[in-house]
Amino acid sequence: MVYFKLYSVIALAIAVSAVGVNAAAIGKRASCSAINDQFSPNSDIGQNWGGQLPAGSYALGGDGLEMRVLNPSPKKVGDGPTFISNSLIQYGYVEARIKSAPVNGLVTSFIFRAPNGDEIDWEWVANEAQTSYYYHGIDDYTTEGSTVVPDDSSNFHTYAINWQPDSITWYIDGVAQRTVTKESTNQNGVYHYPTAAANVELGLWDSSFDKSTAAWAHGPVDWSKQPAYVSAYVQYVKVTC
């Protein structure tokens, strides 16, 4: 979704001192590092992740990594976290066990994002698990797909992306939901296919800052009816180079 892309590019430029990693370091680590983070109360988040992490926007507990969007009252848009992997990955398999946020207008995300604008997404809005990919930051919404997961906010499911030089496949609980081939992205001799080394990102954000983005996410959020924060959970993330 383009509005989150712009929002997070800004976030990437911010020093991520909350976990002791800076944005410049993220850009310099071009070699892939395998990740197997089983988020527990004693996990060292800073070992593999930096990002934009407002105070109070995450915690570690029995359900893993809790990502929180903070109630902004009296403002209209809540702050949430964006976790960015410390290393870049060019092709590979990523998997996470996620329970998305239960409030319409909040977007839970698990994506690849490259500095040049290439992107491969899982994003959750309401009970939809949405897939998409972008080439060089071009806003082509014809790449989007959607799968209804009725209990995505009440139960954990395993979501994965297998990104290879010739295809991308998205999975839910080990079952392939969608495959896009590089060949199918040919536009006038140019393959609009993500190929650049990318960071893995986990995030939870409020779509209410823009009317069209909020409409896409079934929002905006009525924060007057919400508690101090609304959460999504990640039990683990695995990256295979």
Results as ranks from 00 to 15, higher is better:
residue 117 G to F: 01
residue 125 V to P: 09
residue 223 W to S: 02
residue 137 G to V: 09
residue 209 F to K: 06
residue 139 D to C: 08
residue 137 G to E: 07
residue 175 V to N: 12
residue 198 A to W: 02
residue 197 A to G: 05
residue 187 Q to H: 11
residue 170 W to Q: 05
residue 162 N to S: 09
residue 140 D to A: 07
residue 190 V to D: 01
residue 148 V to N: 15
residue 166 D to S: 15
residue 150 P to L: 09
residue 139 D to Q: 10
residue 195 T to F: 00
residue 224 S to C: 05
residue 220 P to W: 03
residue 209 F to G: 14
residue 141 Y to L: 12
residue 214 A to L: 10
residue 165 P to G: 05
residue 198 A to V: 01
residue 142 T to A: 13
residue 145 G to P: 05
residue 157 H to D: 12
residue 232 A to K: 06
residue 214 A to G: 10
residue 122 W to S: 02
residue 139 D to I: 10
residue 111 I to T: 10
residue 119 E to D: 13
residue 209 F to A: 07
residue 171 Y to I: 08
residue 131 T to K: 10
residue 209 F to R: 13
residue 185 T to V: 11
residue 153 S to C: 11
residue 166 D to G: 08
residue 179 T to F: 11
residue 210 D to H: 12
residue 142 T to M: 12
residue 131 T to F: 02
residue 169 T to I: 12
residue 157 H to A: 11
residue 157 H to G: 11
residue 119 E to K: 04
residue 134 Y to E: 04
residue 231 S to E: 01
residue 235 Q to E: 12
residue 203 G to A: 12
residue 195 T to G: 01
residue 175 V to I: 15
residue 208 S to Q: 01
residue 188 N to M: 07
residue 131 T to M: 15
residue 230 V to D: 00
residue 205 W to A: 06
residue 161 I to M: 07
residue 203 G to Y: 04
residue 129 A to P: 07
residue 139 D to S: 11
residue 228 A to S: 15
residue 213 T to S: 13
residue 224 S to P: 01
residue 201 E to Q: 10
residue 220 P to C: 09
residue 188 N to I: 01
residue 215 A to W: 11
residue 191 Y to N: 10
residue 237 V to R: 00
residue 194 P to F: 00
residue 225 K to C: 07
residue 201 E to M: 09
residue 190 V to T: 13
residue 209 F to H: 08
residue 183 E to P: 05
residue 225 K to A: 15
residue 182 K to E: 03
residue 236 Y to S: 07
residue 174 G to M: 08
residue 134 Y to M: 06
residue 147 T to C: 03
residue 232 A to H: 07
residue 138 I to Q: 04
residue 215 A to T: 14
residue 177 Q to Y: 10
residue 210 D to S: 13
residue 140 D to E: 06
residue 210 D to Q: 07
residue 220 P to D: 04
residue 182 K to G: 05
residue 143 T to L: 03
residue 145 G to W: 06
residue 215 A to N: 13
residue 203 G to R: 08
residue 192 H to I: 07
residue 129 A to T: 04
residue 179 T to P: 05
residue 165 P to D: 10
residue 146 S to Y: 05
residue 129 A to R: 04
residue 122 W to D: 08
residue 172 I to K: 14
residue 204 L to V: 13
residue 201 E to D: 01
residue 155 N to K: 15
residue 145 G to A: 09
residue 186 N to R: 05
residue 231 S to M: 09
residue 212 S to F: 12
residue 131 T to P: 03
residue 206 D to W: 11
residue 115 P to Q: 06
residue 120 I to T: 11
residue 120 I to D: 10
